[in-house]
């Protein structure tokens, strides 16, 4: 428990974080920024898991363990995404969405 901070406040914070991530994912034009937005979403759920565990079910550490796994998987995901972005950059010398896209409906 954090004294003086209720679970509602933290959950509000994570929800805001989540929607900033969604907004960023949709509006950003740069691949790296899109990746950062995805990280925001993942981190919002990490905080969610930890907080729910700590405030609501403090006896079993399921949420905390879950959050560690999310962090590890998110790191792998980012590494792979950056590798592909670098590969794309070698071919088109840009990481802007507009210039990388050749396939459309």
């Amino acid at each position: 428990m954090i004294p003086g901070v209720s679970i509602t406040e933290i959950l509000t914070l994570t929800s805001i974080l989540f929607f900033i991530g969604i907004y960023g994912f949709i509006t950003r034009k740069n691949l790296i920024s899109i990746l950062i937005s995805v990280e925001l979403i993942l981190n919002a759920s990490v905080v969610n898991f930890v907080i729910i565990n700590k405030y609501l079910f403090p006896d079993v550490l399921q949420g905390v363990v879950y959050s560690i796994f999310i962090i590890a998987v998110a790191a792998a995901e980012t590494a792979l995404a950056v590798a592909i972005i670098i590969n794309l950059y070698r071919q088109v010398s840009s990481v802007e969405v507009k210039e990388t896209e050749v396939m459309k409906y």
Binding site: L31, L42, I84, N87, T100
Partner: peptide
């Protein structure tokens, strides 16, 4: 192919 990869990984991550 790279474009397919980045589209897949970003939407999968989201």
């Amino acid at each position: 192919s790279s474009e397919a990869g980045i589209k897949l990984i970003l939407s999968a991550a989201l």
